[in-house]
Design a protein around this nucleic acid. Structure first.
Lengths: 131, 131
DNA sequence: TCTAATACCTATTATAGCACTGGGATAAAT
DNA sequence: ATTTATCCCAGTGCTATAATAGGTATTAGA
């Protein structure tokens, strides 16, 4: 399941994409428009800043704005940043994990196909496709 | 994410699909073959019995077997039984829920498309496709 | 009829992640 | 100095997951 973090992050990004690209939009505004607690959004935008999706400046007139043109973001990268992984099963989420049953596992090919489908879907969607 | 319940259930079903269709396969055997604690599998097969996917008989010579031909099961129905929902977001998982933002939500169409894709994928796979 | 093998039932637990909330420190513009 | 912001750290309540434990009931066969 996509958590609120991923879903809210996407809404924040859409909100910013629809704003004046040269303006720093304060979180308070986004919170009101999106109907999400500003406090909770702080956590989310922090991750977005860490992932270089947006930049923030403090002080009066401060806020957040995108680091690139809206058309240069994919939904996949935003979601993956927030969810840590888009993988549907534990055995694929951690690339380090080497399952002892993998050679005989009847279900692994299914999960791999599923995983691939999800990735293509989300990485194939641009942020601008949602506007 | 697909939980262990869903993944293990699928493996149980595959295990039974590969067994003699007239034989009741004891859980102990499945647990050993699949390398899953028998105790935990009890919970899983209980749900499978409840959902009429398999039947069990007690006593010596007892065990579990499929209720239909392996080709008549879809992966989707097995997973949905175990996971309660295959929906990726809370707003679609509960059909009763009527989101106040749905008419203006920029992300809803994305989740709907995603949801549909997942359903088609899993309901389009038969148990026999995994053998 | 006894025994072994089996399913079936109820309960408890430990851990982790999710979805937040609170209080303050720091930064910048007027 | 004041206002408007971000930035930072900490804590909380809840629920689901992934099990484990111990027992009862049922059945086939020796």
């Amino acid at each position: 399941m996509i958590s609120t973090k991923g879903r809210y992050a996407l809404r924040v990004m859409i909100d910013l994409a629809e704003a004046d690209p040269d303006r720093f939009v304060p979180l308070k505004e986004i919170a009101e428009r999106q109907d999400i607690s500003k406090k909770y959004l702080e956590i989310i935008v922090h991750s977005l800043v860490e992932g270089n999706m947006i930049v923030g400046t403090s002080g009066k007139g401060g806020g957040y704005k995108l680091t690139r043109d809206p058309s240069e973001y994919t939904v996949g990268e935003i979601l993956e940043l927030m969810e840590k992984t888009l993988s549907c099963v534990a055995c694929l989420a951690d690339p380090e994990y080497d399952c002892p049953r993998k050679s005989q596992c009847r279900t692994l090919p299914l999960w791999e196909e599923y995983d691939h489908m999800i990735r293509s879907f989300f990485y194939g969607k641009k942020l601008t496709d949602l506007l």
